[in-house]
Structure formats: structure tokens, C-alpha cells
Amino acid sequence: MTRLAFLWDTFLQLLAGVPVTLSLVAVSVALGGLLALALTGIRRASRLGEWAVSAYVFALRGSPLLIQIFLIYYGFGQIGWIRSSFLWPFLREPWWCAITALALNTAAYQAEVLRGGLNAVPKGAVEAARVCGMGRAMAFRRIVLPIAIRQALPAYTSEVVIMVKATSLASIITLFEITGIAHSIVSETFRAFEVLSIAGLIYLAINFTLTRAFRRLEIRLTPQSRGRPTDRPVSKA
């Protein structure tokens, strides 16, 4: 096989891992996001809740993701009640283990991102909403959350990029996403430079696209930063 044909063939093989990588990212970021919202709710509910969530965030941000994946994939099998529970059919599968670990991990980081966003909400905006007769829940849904999400979006973007990179660890528990496929091609062909560079380029392309998409979303969500309509060039018609 010529060198070019090998590169093309490798590229096609690695491309088959892209859906796996992307679905790992999408599912875990979505689940982690829901969990982060729940954590934020618990954190705001009571003193004890705040303490518990801080402990959770500390433990998941302070230890490596790889050890968290191993703890779930290999460790949970050691515990009797997990083995006999309804969760076991899921936690036996590497895919669900990877999803669980990634989601629990990103939830801790997203909870911090969300906290930063919530702290940036001006007190006056909340007070104005309450004065208008909005209840706490409605003020949170209509005023606080939108402002917080807008504030948190740049940090959220980098969290998603970090998650794209983090999914590569799923290859260690036998999932064939991009890195897993690359590793198996390298161990068959010993052509590490070529194979791993192509894999790297695919990751860069994914992250570049994601960053651009989030940037567009950010511009859409912050109309006030685009300037008033009169600032724009007026059409002749």
C-alpha cells in the first residue's frame, strides 16, 4: 500500500470513530448539565446542601477522570448492592460506564461554571423582577437563568471542548472512539506519527467547529453587544 493510500485508509477508519466520540460528548454533557442544574438547586436550598455540593465538586475536580472511570467500570462490580440493583445491566457496559463517569465529572465543573454565571446576575435585575410581581420560580426561569447562561457561555464552551478531549479516555475501557481506533491501528502498523497526527487533526476540526458554533450562539444570545440597530449601516432602499 502506498503511503497516501495508507493515510486515506487510516482517515476513513478514524472517521468511523467520530460518531462514537460525538455521542459520548453529547449525552454526557447533556446529562451532566441536568445534574449541574440539580446540584445548583441543592446548593441554593440549604446550608447542608451547599456543603454537600461543595464536597462533591471538590472530590470530582480534585481527582483524575481516569481513576473515576476505573472506579465505576471495575469498582462498582465489587459492591454487592450495585450488582443486584437495576443499574447493573447499564454499569456492566463500557459505554454506560464512560457516560456515567464523564457526566458525573462534567456536572462538577458545570456546577462551578453555573455558579459563576449566577453570581454575575445583578441584584437589581432580580429585585426588579420581584417588584413586577414575579414569583421566585418565575423570576429564576425568566430573568436569572437567561442572564446566568449568557454570562457562563464562554466558560461553558471551554468545558465542552475539554469534554471532547476527555472522551479519549473511554478508549482505555475498550470503547472504539477516535483514540481507541487510532491506538489499535498503531499497534497493528507501528506507524504512530501518521495515524496519531490524523487523529489529532480530526479532534482539532471537531473542537474548531464547536468553538465557532458556540461563538455564534453567544453573539445570538447577546443582542445588546451587537450595538443598536441605528449603529448599523442603513440600507439604501
Binding site: 478531549k165 482505555i172 483514540t179 504512530a192 489529532g200 479532534y203 482539532l204
Partner: peptide, 10 residues
């Protein structure tokens, strides 16, 4: 922009 694991493998 590239996973750390990939850099270590490389």
C-alpha cells in the same frame, strides 16, 4: 485542542 492521551501516545 487535542486529547492529552493522544499526545502521550504520539
Amino acid at each position: 485542542g487535542v486529547p492529552d492521551l493522544l499526545v502521550i501516545y504520539l
